[in-house]
Design a protein around this nucleic acid. Structure first.
Length: 339
DNA sequence: AATTGACCTGGAAA
DNA sequence: ATTTCCAGGTCAA
């Protein structure tokens, strides 16, 4: 634990702190990766080229050029433990998109048409943040999910620093979310029925062993994808789709394919036409789509899924983009901090 | 075991 | 101005 640092007032100060790591722009498109429905905490800055957000208990501003990923640290609850490595791990820069695109294109002719999209990567996110974020995602839209995640941080998270009158908070701990009045407060804040899912999942997690229990579900710690998914689904508010999101985005099970309405629709038109008779995504359909695409795309199928998903939400209607930009800029709110 | 409807909310479309 | 529809689903009858 360290004390929180103060925010920097001016842009001049910020730019002095810039550092960078090597990263080919063909391997990473910041906009589509950060604003593509994986993480809900990134804001596009007014300059139109940089993005600001929180991960790893640290406030970052990110931008890129042809061969570098440039970052600024504004504040952190951590000691300086090598931010370049943390950043590289977050984007999984050790994996080559180019190589995998070749593989997917060779087994799936549809990938030629997905090619005009920028370089989408699967973020390696914190499992606690990812879990509660995707509990919020059910039957919900990305704009409101983002608002809810920010509220969780503001109400139950630790303050990191302020930049230009904007306060930045860490994502709350499981302990903070399992306090007795969490459900009531979240209902009051407009979370709807997800308030109960969040509170009950936090309490159950705590009784299972907290964050350690989640971390032990990682692939690198020896748990299989199927076993991790099954364990996650024992938590309230976590069904097959949300469990797959967590497996893919924060547990290292890159073969996991979250099947939502968008992927289901693409599967109907491009891959499994006979599914079109089905009107909604049942667990059985979910399983069928998921395993079909996993067989097709291979061990990193979830990454391929993310590309298809981004393709879909970008093309479906370009009005969504304009709307989300406007929403992202407007600042809020009147939230009361709860002790 | 598979189907079906309810579930919170807020912004857009009807 | 109101009502209906919809959004990265889950749960229980």
């Amino acid at each position: 634990m360290t004390s929180t640092s103060e925010g920097y007032k001016s842009c001049e100060n910020i730019s002095k702190k810039e550092k960078s790591i090597f990263c080919d722009i063909k391997e990473l498109d910041l906009r589509i990766t950060l604003k593509g429905g994986q993480s809900f905490r990134w804001i596009e800055c007014n300059d139109g080229k940089s993005f600001r957000g929180v991960f790893s208990s640290t406030v970052w501003t990110l931008m890129q050029n042809d061969d570098k990923l440039i970052y600024t640290i504004h504040g952190s609850l951590k000691e300086d433990v090598g931010f370049s490595k943390i950043l590289s791990d977050y984007f999984r820069l050790n994996l080559s998109l180019k190589e995998n695109l070749r593989t997917w294109a060779s087994v799936d002719s549809h990938f030629e048409s997905y090619n005009k999209l920028g370089a989408v990567r699967i973020l390696n996110q914190d499992v606690v943040e990812n879990l509660f974020s995707f509990i919020c995602s059910s039957n919900n839209n990305i704009i409101r999910i983002s608002g809810m995640v920010e509220k969780l941080c503001k109400i139950f998270g630790t303050r990191i620093c302020a930049i230009e009158d904007q306060e930045y908070y860490d994502f709350p701990t499981i302990e903070a979310l399992s306090k007795p009045n969490v459900e009531f407060n979240l209902r009051k804040e407009g979370f709807g029925y997800r308030a109960g899912y969040i509170s009950k999942s936090a309490q159950k997690l705590l009784s299972l062993g907290g964050k350690k229990w989640l971390l032990q579900l990682k692939k690198e710690n020896g748990t299989t994808y199927e076993s991790a998914k099954e364990s996650l689904m024992s938590l309230p508010g976590v069904g097959p789709k949300v469990a797959d999101c967590i497996c893919l985005m924060s547990l290292g099970h890159l073969e996991a394919i979250p099947v939502d309405t968008h992927i289901f629709q693409v599967a109907c038109t491009n891959y499994i036409p006979h599914l079109s008779k089905q009107s909604n995504v049942t667990p059985k359909i979910n399983q069928e789509v998921s395993s079909y695409l996993r067989r097709l795309w291979g061990p990193l199928a979830g990454w391929a899924q993310a590309i298809v998903f981004c393709m879909k939400i970008n093309s479906s209607n370009s009005q969504n983009r304009k709307r989300s930009i406007q929403q992202g800029r407007k600042k809020s709110t009147k939230i009361t901090k709860v002790k």
